[in-house]
Each structure stands twice: as structure tokens, then as C-alpha cells.
Design a protein around this nucleic acid. Structure first.
Lengths: 256, 256
DNA sequence: CATCTCAATTAACATAGATTAGGCTCGCCA
DNA sequence: TGGCGAGCCTAATCTATGTTAATTGAGATG
């Protein structure tokens, strides 16, 4: 995660897949704040280039000031901080359609690194263009601020998990959040199945638990017939049951 | 914390103490983004009323949409969420000069409650006035966004504490943060002493530890001659040592 | 002055989760 | 083809922290 992002730059990748990856960004902001067709249109042209970042490589480095806004178009990424030695803690997740970091809103530096977990595709937005468009269409800025607000709510919810929930509740809550967030951008398949490009060790770094205990906890969820989970594919078997186990209330994902 | 804020409304409290409480808000935003004298002036007139909130009463209720921006002028408050039964987790702290909540930036509802810990004084800012002033002086909005960014950084830092630090590090880190944040607004006295209106039980709710263990941990810090702590007065005896114990890096409190 | 309550403190005991260590499976590559 | 590393799984032990409960002191209140 220290090496520079290995990237295949693809300027103006629109042509290749128009209804594809860029769309997820528009869908996401639309869910946060309903946009007019012309606003959606303007949004799409904002992403002026995209590039791939390989698993375990940084999308943004610690303390790096943002010269541009980055959007995740595909894959999964996380905010993280390295502590003394080999200890690492993840502090948030970036899903397709999300901004990688909100430093651009206040022209302040990124405080933490953002790392790709699986293979990802990142979109680039020029800040000058963004503010130009934002001046004409304030709803777009409003949607971005709401995205930041949801991000903040997720961070606080993670605090609650780590501070007050036991391992089973933490994991269940985490899966609930992923499920709901992915559903918003249409990435949950039939049978309530979704991809989660994380190893058990990485789940441990996210939830403040050891790998061994993550494993035990997954077994427990399996035994209770709440989920299926293997090679990065998660299936929700009993949504109601799982949300109850985590006392999950999805409202924090929906501003206003 | 369920009852309405018991308040003594004091419209236009300026006269009584001009260089006093309102100043802390101006000082705070100035530290986040250097403001011109006329901008600072404008800021002061924004706070159009202030009222006291008693300890353990809500300043903002859960899920309440913000019709105004609230600023803490005196005292200490926290974001919190009540879980099943008697479990409660604090997710952030509001110090003098801080906005109580950033929902107003994205016109989205407050997701969590904000509660006074000690006796507090809260200032009110009309949103219409704020956006009017913000249009003329974008630096003020920028400073507010930076405040939001620091707030976010604090939340992530709390995630790190709860996920990856043991009791001693958590407490030391927390005290480091309080010390630095209070110093920014000039609330650390001679001899590195400051007020902290929290019981040990409340510290536990903040740091995800039991009251008993908080007590044990305080003893430990005392034994190591790092702090003094009694009846809400904390003294830092060995800042370097304490920051080392917590591996505290104050950069996250300083955007850009 | 007696009493009450709340916060701090301490001790004894209980447990969730960490740590260490090992084995198993599978895909990759030499 | 065979070895190697990554990820998953399991068992045994250890420890940080939780729980319960009881003691003390200080401030408020009658």
C-alpha cells in the first residue's frame, strides 16, 4: 500500500461504456439529492478520466492535499491508518459511486490513506470544473455535501460498533451496511447476494477484531443461517434476522 | 437527556460580554482559516441569541432537522446514541467555538443527539443570515467546511482508538485531543490545566470502557506521573510522555 | 446534624476476545 | 509435477477488560 497506484490511464473513457461505470456516480448522487436531467447530464461529463488501481495499492496517500476529486467507479476501497508496527485500522469504506475523500470540499489535505481492497476503477474530477458546474447547479454541491454527511454518519456508526457492540453484532452490522449501501447503487444481485472483496484478516482490521475471532464469528452467523460467505461472495439468507441481530437502523444512510 | 433543553433565552447577549463567549467562535474559525477583520466582524454578528443548556440535557435531539446552526460558546457537549436498554455510546465532542452539528451544511437531519455534559451556553445562527453572509464572504463558509473536516477526522481518530488502542492509550489519546483542542481556543490555563466536565462513567461511555476500568486506567496514568485529575480539573504533568504513550499526532486537528 | 445521593475507589471473580500454533485447500508458478 | 504462499479453519491457552458488589467521601438537603 506504499507504492504509487499502478494505473492504466484511460482519458475520456466514456465511449467504451456509457451506461456503465460513470452511471453509478450519477445514481449515487441522485439518491442523495434528486437531480434534474440536465444536472445529471452535467455530472456525467465531470468525470474526465478514469484509471484502475490494483488491490492493496493506495488511491490517496496520507496527508496528501487534493488537487482533484476522486470518485470510485468500481470495486471497494477503505480509509485506513497505519499504527505502530504492523497494526492497521480501517476507518471507513468507499463503495462505487462514492467520493474517495471529502478533502476537496474544504481544500484541506487528506488526513488518512485510501486504499483499494479489490481491483478498482477510479474516476477523476477536476476541481475547477466541479466548482464551475457547482456554481450553476447548486443541487450538485448539495448532493456532494450530503454524501459527506452520510460519510460522517457512517464513521460515527463505526464508533458505535467498536465501542459498544460485540463481535457478532459488529459483523452483522457491517454486513447490513454494505448490503444497504450497495443496494442503493444497484450492486446487490438476485437472492440478496453481493461481492465483498475482503479477506477475513481485512475484516478484522475494519472491525477491530483478530482474524481468528472473525472466523469464529462468521461460523456463528452461518450456523444461525443468517448468511453465506465464501470467496468474496456474501448472501443474505435472513435479512430481518440479521438486522435484528445487529439492531440495524438504515436511516443514517439516508440524509433527510 | 430526553427532556427539552432547559434554557434561559438571552436574545442579543452581546452587550453583556463582548470580548467573551462569542469571541471563542471567531477565534475557532480563524484558526481553521485565517479571516480578514471585516469577516471576523461579520461572524460575530451572526450569533443572534444564546441560551444555557443544563448538564445532561439535549442540545439537539436525534433525527431533528436543523432550522438553524448551533454553536457551543461555553462548556462541553457530546454526540451520542442510545443503544438497546441502558447502553449509550458517545461518538464525538463539542468544545467551545465548535458547531454542535454540521447538518446545516447539507440541509440534512441530525442523525444523533447532542447532549450537554457540563453547564453549557449555546449560540444560535440563523441559516438565512449565514448563507447571506457566506455568499459575500466565502472564506467563512470555507472555514465552516474545514470545521466539518476536522470533525470528521476526530471521528475517524476515535474509530482508531476504539478499534486498535488499549485502555491506557485510549485515555491518554483522548486527553491529548482535549488538551490540543482546548488550547486552540485559549481554554488551557497555566500549568497545562483544563476543565473537563465528565464523570468517570461518562469517560467510559466515550471510550468504550467500563467505569471500573476507566478508574484503574486513571490510577495508572497518575502513577506514571503523567496527569492529575480530580473533580473535573485535569493537569498535564508530562505532555511529551503522555503524547508518546498515546502515539498522538495532532496534525489531524489542523486542516491544511 | 442526620441523611441521601452521587462519584470515586477497591477487590474478587468472570469472560470475550487475543495470541500462538498448527493443519488444510487451492491456485499459481517454476 | 511439485512446491509455495495465501487464505481459511480449529484448538489450547492467556489476558485485558467486564461485572458485581461493597466502602468511602463530599456535597446537597431537610
Amino acid at each position: 500500500m506504499n507504492s504509487p497506484p499502478v494505473s492504466e490511464l484511460t482519458a475520456n473513457a466514456h465511449a467504451r461504456r456509457d451506461q456503465g461505470e460513470h452511471d453509478v456516480f450519477v445514481r449515487r448522487l441522485n439518491a442523495l439529492y434528486p437531480l434534474q436531467p440536465h444536472e445529471s447530464k452535467a455530472l456525467e461529463t465531470l468525470v474526465d478520466a478514469s484509471y484502475a488501481v490494483l488491490p492493496h495499492h493506495d488511491i490517496l496517500h496520507e496527508q496528501q492535499p487534493s488537487k482533484e476529486a476522486l470518485v470510485l467507479l468500481e470495486g471497494l476501497a477503505c480509509h485506513y491508518k497505519v499504527l505502530d508496527s504492523a497494526r492497521r485500522q480501517m476507518t471507513g469504506f468507499v463503495l462505487p459511486g462514492d467520493f474517495c475523500d471529502f478533502g476537496f470540499l474544504s481544500s484541506s489535505a487528506t488526513r488518512q490513506g485510501v486504499m483499494a481492497l479489490g481491483p478498482t476503477l477510479v474516476g477523476r474530477i477536476d476541481l475547477r470544473q466541479l466548482s464551475a458546474v457547482g456554481d450553476k447547479m447548486p443541487n450538485i454541491l448539495l448532493a456532494a455535501m450530503r454524501a459527506a454527511s452520510v460519510d460522517q454518519a457512517c464513521a460515527r456508526e463505526l464508533v458505535i460498533s467498536l465501542g459498544a457492540r460485540d463481535a457478532l453484532q459488529r459483523l452483522a452490522h457491517f454486513l447490513c451496511e454494505m448490503y444497504h449501501r450497495l443496494r442503493i447503487v444497484g450492486l446487490v444481485g438476485a437472492g440478496a447476494q453481493f461481492e465483498l472483496a475482503m479477506t477475513q484478516a481485512e475484516l478484522g482490521e475494519a472491525l477491530g477484531l483478530s482474524t481468528v475471532h472473525i472466523n469464529r464469528t462468521i461460523q456463528q452467523l452461518r450456523k444461525q443461517k443468517l448468511i453465506t460467505m465464501s470467496q468474496g461472495l456474501v448472501t443474505i439468507l435472513d435479512a430481518a434476522g440479521r438486522e435484528a441481530a445487529a439492531s440495524f437502523d438504515p436511516r443514517y444512510l439516508r440524509p433527510n
